[in-house]
């Protein structure tokens, strides 16, 4: 049973890290909003799904690639990839702002109960998913292969593929940039101030609405980037893919300690690895069960997740 794991340990690990980085970016979407609003952004999975369509639209409708055309080369390859990534991030970022505007803003201004906001978010996520289902006629949409999956090198018997390498490096880079933005920029400081104490931040002159919209935007950008990497790895999308990925990413955020950016990072990576190892050892069908059992065990001993702070301590 474990021989699979030992034989293919390194290739599994690399696949796990690549998947993990996709989760890291999506869980940023959850964790950012949670940090500021103390609210699960249920629509984040659909924001991710819309993000994947950003990439498909760019490569298919703007650069006119089809399933059968040759993968791009050289400068054009870079251009297509970068513009797909930017498009995905833009689509997802704008969707996130739209969600905030439609589902959250009014309820937040009224200061009503959290469940109403939760249901409102669920409503908008059903609507977003349905719009995409109607637009795509419930069919899966294949993405043209832009990036040839060349095997770069072999380390300890594991094939290192170009798309995995790009996914890992670029995702890590995007995460790093966003993390620096939260840590160092003026806006990032304001976001952290609001997440510490909303009222005090308001009294200090922080523009609450702008901070919250920015938070949604940043979360949406990260989630959209994840959509791009998802397409490069899996090469197809469908109106309902958001659910599984969103669920996993949300679990990752909780595992790491929701509301905490470092938590999203380690939570996402450990979830990616855990999923890949669990599928290898127990079979794909038990992947989700293993993940949830691990989550329950972690929460039993660390009720705030791996990196969550104790209640009422300040957050960085």
């Amino acid at each position: 049973m474990f021989s699979v794991l030992i034989d293919q340990f390194w290739s599994l690990t690399i696949a796990g890290i690549a998947l993990g980085f996709i989760y890291v970016l999506i869980s940023l979407g959850y964790t950012m909003v949670y940090g500021v609003l103390r609210m699960i952004n249920f629509a984040n999975s659909e924001i991710f799904m819309w993000g994947t369509f950003g990439t498909v639209i760019t490569s298919r409708d703007i650069f006119h690639y089809t399933q059968t055309s040759e993968p791009a080369k050289g400068a054009k390859l870079v251009l297509v990839l970068v513009s797909s990534l930017v498009m995905s991030m833009l689509v997802a970022g704008l969707t996130a702002i739209f969600v905030e505007f439609v589902a959250y803003r009014r309820l937040r201004m009224k200061g009503t109960n959290r469940l109403a906001t939760l249901i409102s978010a669920i409503g908008i996520s059903i609507a977003l998913q349905e719009i995409m289902r109607l637009l795509t006629h419930s069919r899966p949409v294949g993405a043209p292969r832009i990036l040839e999956k060349i095997i770069l090198t072999e380390i300890w018997g594991a094939n290192i593929r170009l798309d995995t390498v790009i996914t890992i490096i670029a995702a890590a880079l995007i995460f790093f940039v966003l993390e620096r933005f939260i840590k160092l920029s003026r806006m990032g400081k304001a976001i952290r101030a609001v997440s510490m104490n909303e009222d005090a931040a308001k009294l200090m002159g922080v523009n609450l609405n702008r901070v919250i919209t920015t938070t949604f935007l940043v979360g949406g950008l990260a989630t959209g980037a994840a959509g791009f990497f998802y397409i490069t790895v899996f090469e197809y999308t469908k109106f309902n893919i958001g659910f599984t990925m969103g669920m996993a990413a949300f679990t990752a955020a909780v595992l790491g300690g929701i509301g905490n950016i470092r938590g999203a990072f380690f939570g996402g990576l450990s979830l990616g690895l855990l999923e890949v190892y669990a599928s290898a050892v127990l079979g794909t069908q038990w992947k989700a069960v293993t993940v949830f059992i691990v989550l329950v065990l972690v929460l039993l001993f660390k009720p705030n997740g791996l990196f969550g702070e104790a209640v009422q301590t300040t957050r960085a």
């Binding site: 309820l107 109960n113 109403a116 409102s120 409503g123 996520s125 059903i126 977003l128 349905e130 109607l134």
Partner: peptide
């Protein structure tokens, strides 16, 4: 085809205008 879309929209609209639901519980119980 659009019925789930309508369903989602109804959820958003009603929650936005009646955050405590259609028939909320008594105020003192909140």
């Amino acid at each position: 085809d659009a019925r789930l879309l309508v369903f989602g929209t109804v959820l958003v609209v009603v929650m936005n205008f009646r955050p405590d639901g259609l028939l909320p519980r008594k105020k003192r119980e909140k």
